[in-house]
Design a protein around this nucleic acid. Structure first.
Length: 717
DNA sequence: GACCTGCTGCGGCTTG
């Protein structure tokens, strides 16, 4: 059958393959060609990183679409601008034997090219969800004209949309695009790390007509664990830095230290060692608070350094999609927050010539080592955490309501409600609820009603006519760090930010000479020594699957050949602490330890359930301390019977949840996170959103009901 | 201690 797929392709595409001297099609390409050309369904292409998924989608698409007809034929949607710029070259290359214009459309893309495509819409457009949203709002007539003949939508890195606000926005936009089309377009989603295939299928709005093509083959991954006890110090152990240096100095590497401050610490310390021993100077930092120009220089350097070695210390900015060139090794400092992240990061190395990926996992505490081991073990078993699903996204609905009204320049009240209630992104929201939200917006002048016609109201205009309107996430407001009138990056205005303090940024050391709070600027000059910067970030949730695996490992005898001696020792000691707690069934039982009038519950329940438990405890006037990387909870002034009584009494709060949340919103609104577009909703819907997004009450009550706390008395403190 | 992602249109300025 091998010849089958190839012979199905059109002549220019076969010529392209010949010229590229591909000896064979990759498995995912082979099946994608046969299936996509074989019917009219939607497809999710799931295959490991660097397996040729982009080509798997575009080879059959380019073979079957008639690009001579008017309008955009293919829309490629990406979560990142950098990925669009990367894929642009690849897609253009694929089209070289065909007369198909390829156009980048995002906030930083060339205006002239955009104007050209508006005048003569043809071919393929590469775009972000936010730019699509902006098009609907500011160029509604063009949207109809551009996309009424759309045949395919390709969604890259589809996992980054599943279970996120951005994904709900994208679904809604896909529905709005479909409204413009006479015949339905087909959707092809691409990803290497899908945790829930049913949810992935839902992004098309038609699960029944969406199929998954799955290539289970894994890239060989060579993994090593290294352990250096951080002894609770704020800075990383010097021996760990030296060990990383030995690993990276003669290689091309990416280092992931999990936080922006740590990224700077690692980059500067490695650079210092290198200077001392006469090594290369190519140590860089890459994260969201470093100026875009500097980040682009770093990416450019990595892509174009055939001979020179380099190390980029980075956050998740370099985790997704972008081909940074050939990387020999990936270093992870302390555990990733998810299995998906671990896979994506490991996949950044060995992308050329099917080489294996090299991964070194450093840990600075036993708990971090155990979490890293759990992530690795789940990866080995092909388990990826499932996304968090919001069934009734009232906030995104409110946002889309404003977007539709603005884009239509006025719309009939009943037509708007009809549009929203038939949009599959909001299929679980009642028509009456939609009407209630619209009516509320009319009441607060977000929307103005003239007869049956709705237009954007006075208050609404302020929100809609702002560039922040197009996205679902909030932006941090930071001060710019300036040297010689050049922006290096930005920092939050923390106590650390004052004259004469020295800080690290963009892998360099700076002295602050002046802080202009009015202009929001921090003026700096180079310095010789400094501290890592502190950032204000929200924590990252760890999935219960990972905590569960950590707990299972603690009570199993499984041995791991990937662990070095000190990691093994750390695991052994954790197991020694936990083994006396007589757990018979690690899936249904959790230890409760009581000593000296305080108790510890080893929950291993995932971040969201743990935070929900803490909230519920606070409503019982008990302050709970979360410890052990979020796995355990400590209660003071509690003995065994108290603890058990409180634990079970939490279930009684089930029926009072709404009133608890209403009072929390009134008394301590700053303590409860409300999503960007939920802030404008009536209290009732804020509460509904908090129940779905901020906390997980259902999961928590289930956890309490299904978990047996097994008590162990401890004499020593 | 705790990630990341994107962004219109216009007026007014400088520069070739």
């Amino acid at each position: 059958m091998a010849a089958d797929a190839f012979s199905l392709l059109s002549e220019p595409i076969r010529r392209y393959i010949h010229e590229k001297r591909w000896t064979k099609l990759r498995p995912i390409q082979h099946s994608a060609i046969r299936y996509i050309l074989g019917d009219n369904d939607n497809y999710i292409l799931a295959a490991r990183t660097a397996s040729g998924k982009t080509e798997a989608a575009f080879l059959p698409i380019l073979s079957s679409v008639d690009f001579s007809s008017e309008g955009i034929q293919v829309l490629y949607i990406s979560p990142l601008i950098a990925l669009i710029n990367d894929q642009f070259a690849r897609v253009e290359d694929l089209c070289k034997y065909m007369d198909v214009p390829v156009t980048k459309w995002h906030g930083e893309a060339n205006r002239a090219a955009k104007d050209r495509i508006l005048k003569e819409p043809r071919g393929i457009v590469l775009i972000t969800p936010e730019s699509l949203e902006a098009m609907f709002v500011t160029k509604p007539y063009n949207v109809t004209y551009l996309f009424s003949n759309l045949k395919f939508v390709v969604i890259d890195e589809i996992h980054s949309f599943i279970g996120t606000d951005r994904g709900i926005q994208l679904k809604s936009i896909l529905y709005r695009l479909q409204e413009k089309n006479g015949t339905p377009f087909r959707i092809i989603g691409l990803s290497a790390t899908i945790g829930d295939y049913d949810e992935a299928k839902k992004i098309t709005g038609n699960e029944a007509r969406t199929k998954v093509l799955l290539d289970r083959s894994k890239k060989p991954l060579h993994t090593e664990f290294r352990y250096f006890d951080g002894k609770d110090e704020t800075e990383l152990p010097p021996d760990l830095i030296k060990d990383i240096y030995r690993h990276v100095h003669a290689n091309k590497t990416l280092i992931f230290p999990n936080s922006r401050g740590r990224v700077e610490e690692v980059a500067v310390k490695l650079k210092k060692i290198s200077e001392r021993v006469g090594g290369h100077g190519n140590f860089f930092a890459h994260h969201s608070s470093i100026d875009k120009g500097i980040r682009e220089y770093v990416e450019f350097f990595a892509k174009n350094s055939q001979r020179e070695n380099f190390s980029i210390s980075c956050t998740s900015t370099l985790e997704l999609g972008i081909d940074i060139g050939s990387v020999d090794e990936i270093i992870q400092v302390d555990a990733t927050h998810s299995v998906s992240s671990l896979i994506q990061r490991a996949g950044r190395s060995g992308r050329k010539n099917e080489e294996e990926s090299n991964l070194t996992l450093y840990a600075t505490s036993p708990w971090s080592m155990l979490q890293a081991l759990a992530c690795w073990s789940l990866y080995e078993k092909d388990c990826i955490e499932s996304p968090d699903i919001v069934e009734r996204p009232y906030d995104i609905l409110a946002h889309q309501a404003l977007s539709i009204i603005k884009g239509h320049n006025g719309i009939d009240y009943r037509v708007l409600i009809e549009k929203l209630s038939s949009n599959f992104a909001f299929r679980n929201i009642q028509r009456s609820e939609i009407a209630e939200i619209i009516d509320y917006f009319i009441g607060i002048d977000f929307i103005e009603k003239i007869g049956h016609e709705l237009i954007v109201g006075i208050e609404g205009e302020r929100i809609v006519n702002n560039r922040e309107f197009f996205s679902t996430f909030e932006r941090e407001i930071n001060f710019n760090v300036v040297h010689n009138s050049k922006v290096i990056g930005n920092l939050p205005f923390t106590p650390q930010v004052q004259s004469d303090n020295n800080i690290l940024l963009a892998a360099k050391i700076w002295k602050i000479v002046e802080v202009d709070t009015e202009a929001g600027k921090i003026f700096v000059v180079p310095a010789l020594d400094g501290k890592k910067p502190t950032f204000i970030g929200s924590g990252v949730n760890v999935h219960p699957l990972i905590h569960g695996e950590m707990f299972r490992i603690l009570f199993s005898d499984e041995e791991f050949s990937v662990l070095d001696e000190k990691s093994n020792q750390a695991l052994k000691e954790l197991r020694k602490d936990f083994r006396p707690m007589s757990i018979q069934n690690p899936t249904t039982e959790r230890p409760l330890l009581c000593m000296n009038n305080r108790s510890i519950i080893h929950l291993f329940a995932g971040t969201k359930v743990t935070e929900t438990l803490r909230y519920l405890m606070s409503k019982r006037n008990i302050s709970a301390l979360i410890t052990n990387n979020g796995c355990s909870m400590e209660l003071s002034d509690m003995d065994e019977s108290n603890s058990l009584a409180i634990w079970h009494s939490l279930l009684l709060l089930k029926d009072d949840l709404d009133s608890l949340l209403y009072s929390s919103l009134e008394e301590t609104p700053h303590l409860i996170h409300i999503p960007k577009w939920g802030k404008h909703l009536p209290e009732k819907y804020k509460v509904a959103l908090i129940k779905q997004k901020t906390f997980d009450f259902e999961g928590t009550f289930q956890f309490i009901a299904n978990t047996k706390l097994v008590t162990t008395k401890v004499l020593r403190s």
